[in-house]
């Protein structure tokens, strides 16, 4: 299978490219990036060809593309790739607004190409184990969720609202909303949130607390932030606690780590040894294209998690509950 990568603006492009190189029947045929230095460097690293012309890149004989651009360029790249009949794995969030997301979904449908959204947390082994436990009714009826996704400030275009569409709340809410929807098979009906910026002197949000109510009455809390500083022992976390009538189970996708102490500035570091969820995502996408099946994480999943995140901003701005 031949796959190309469109843009290395998002750091996940590197781990996705690493994932592609681990798959025996997959070839990374080219990298499109109009940041020429970045594109050339990536092409050199992954022993492939760099293209600075999007049309020329999309004219290549390849089955699929992985889009890792700035969030505001997802739409443009998805529309072009769909028209060129390439199956698509698009980095999250699907878009910066709902109208764009809907157009992207429709374009992929019209051109009969797969649109999968990159939510790697679905491929975390403990997150998958918890899904199995829920499906096997080991938790009973779900009453509530508690979720967190806190990390470091990625800087760069992430803190430019025009390019990212939102700060920590957008960046770190979509993942856990996707997991909750997946576990519960229900949609969020109400959102209440406080969104603010305190951890860094930046013009975009770096902290948010959100409360959700699903259509079936399940309640949930979510803590999204870029509150982790570089001296903190890990990049951050992605946790979910599911409170059920039979039992409560908590999972941290990054909990499988060693504690390493050194006499350096960062004296304690958590060294992660758990499964590579990014590789799981890439493997799933490749299999999806190979089998021509419905993607495990659809454009609609991307749209719904984006909708909830944007509702968080609206709730905070208007200081009221947003009903979806």
């Amino acid at each position: 299978m031949k796959i190309g990568i469109m843009s290395f603006a998002h750091m996940h492009a590197y781990s996705y490219a690493n994932g592609l190189t681990r798959l025996p029947d997959v070839e990374l045929v080219g990298i499109f990036d109009d940041d020429i230095d970045r594109g050339k460097e990536a092409a050199e690293t992954y022993h492939t060809t760099h293209y600075s012309d999007q049309a020329g890149f999309l004219a290549l004989d390849m089955d699929a593309v992985i889009i890792c651009s700035e969030n505001n360029r997802h739409k443009e790249m998805v529309m072009h790739a769909a028209k060129a009949k390439k199956h698509i794995l698009c980095e999250k969030p699907i878009a910066t607004n709902l109208a764009d997301a809907q157009e992207m979904i429709q374009a992929c449908k019209d051109h009969h190409v797969i649109l999968q959204i990159a939510y790697p947390v679905r491929f975390s082994s403990p997150i998958q184990q918890l899904k199995e436990m829920i499906d096997n009714d080991e938790l009973g009826e779900i009453i509530a969720f508690r979720t967190t996704n806190r990390g470091q400030n990625p800087g760069g275009w992430f803190i430019d609202e025009d390019q990212s569409g939102g700060g920590a709340v957008l960046d770190h809410t979509v993942h856990m909303v996707d997991i909750m929807r997946w576990y519960l098979n229900e949609e969020i009906a109400e959102v209440e949130a406080i969104v603010d910026s305190y951890f860094h002197e930046i013009d975009i949000d770096d902290a948010g607390l959100l409360t959700f109510e699903f259509a079936n009455g399940v309640v949930a809390s979510h803590d999204a932030s870029w509150s982790r500083f570089t001296e903190y022992p890990s990049w951050g976390d992605a946790t979910i606690e599911v409170i059920g009538t039979k039992q409560t189970v908590k999972v941290d996708a990054f909990q499988e780590h060693l504690r390493m102490f050194t006499n350096e500035k960062k004296s304690l570091e958590y060294v992660f040894w758990g499964n590579d969820m990014d590789f799981g995502l890439i493997q799933d996408f490749v299999n999806c294209v190979k089998e021509g099946r419905e993607p495990s994480i659809t454009g609609y999943d991307g749209l719904k998690s984006l909708e909830v995140s944007l509702a968080g901003y609206e709730s905070s701005k208007l200081n009221k509950t947003v009903h979806l």
Binding site: I143, A144, E192, A193, I194, D196, Y198, A207, L209, T211, E213, G217, V218, V219, A220, S221, D223, I243, G244, T245, T248, N319, T321
Partner: peptide
């Protein structure tokens, strides 16, 4: 500002979430 969401308190387990804005840069769940 304080906002409260609760599940049915007559059923165990029950769960309550309180979202609080202390203003001036502090928020709490």
């Amino acid at each position: 500002d304080i906002r409260v969401k609760q599940t049915d308190l007559s059923v165990t387990p029950s769960h309550t979430i309180i979202l609080m804005n202390f203003g001036g840069g502090t928020m709490a769940h």
